[in-house]
Amino acid sequence: MERELIEGIAIIQRSKCKEIVLRSLNNGIKMPSKISKETKISIHHVSRYLKQLKEKNLVICLNEDYKQGRLYKITELGKEVLEHI
């Protein structure tokens, strides 16, 4: 199993909230505010989790240059992580 996948599985298994955020993105492209409403996780925490997931290449931001209205999408690695947990 490749290192990136193992690290992704580890980061998700350490935090149920990160798993919930990642699973939310598995249903489509979303803004942090929508993820927050769907999951009942505060927008502050959703934003922090998205940053950490992005650092591990589990999600990508589609419009990084926007200050508001950023859209996030799960990556293929993120989908593979979900299959293994």
Rank of each mutant, 00 (worst) to 15 (best):
Q68R: 14
K51E: 09
S33M: 11
E64L: 10
E83M: 04
K34W: 04
E64V: 12
K18Y: 00
D65E: 08
R48S: 11
N27S: 11
E55C: 07
P32G: 06
R23W: 02
D65K: 14
R23N: 07
K30R: 10
K56D: 08
K79D: 03
I12E: 02
N26D: 13
E7Y: 07
V21P: 04
I12V: 15
T75S: 04
R3G: 06
K73C: 07
K40A: 14
R14M: 14
A10D: 15
I35S: 03
S15W: 11
I85E: 07
I74T: 00
G28I: 00
K73N: 11
A10H: 14
M31D: 01
E55G: 05
E83T: 09
Y66V: 05
Q52M: 14
E4Y: 07
E64G: 03
D65M: 06
I41H: 10
R70I: 03
I9K: 04
G78Q: 05
V46F: 08
M1R: 10
N26G: 10
I11A: 09
M1A: 12
C17F: 08
E64H: 11
C17W: 02
C17N: 12
E7N: 15
K54D: 09
N57D: 15
R3M: 12
K67T: 08
H84G: 04
S15Q: 06
T39C: 06
S47F: 01
E19D: 08
E2G: 13
C61K: 10
K51H: 06
G69Q: 04
K56T: 08
E19A: 13
E7T: 05
C61V: 14
L77V: 08
Y49T: 01
Q13T: 15
R23Y: 06
I9W: 01
L53M: 05
T75R: 01
G28Y: 02
I11M: 07
R3F: 13
H45N: 14
L62M: 03
V81G: 06
K30F: 01
L25W: 00
I6Q: 10
K54T: 11
I35Y: 00
K67G: 05
K54A: 13
E76V: 07
N63G: 00
R3H: 10
S42I: 06
K73P: 06
I74Q: 03
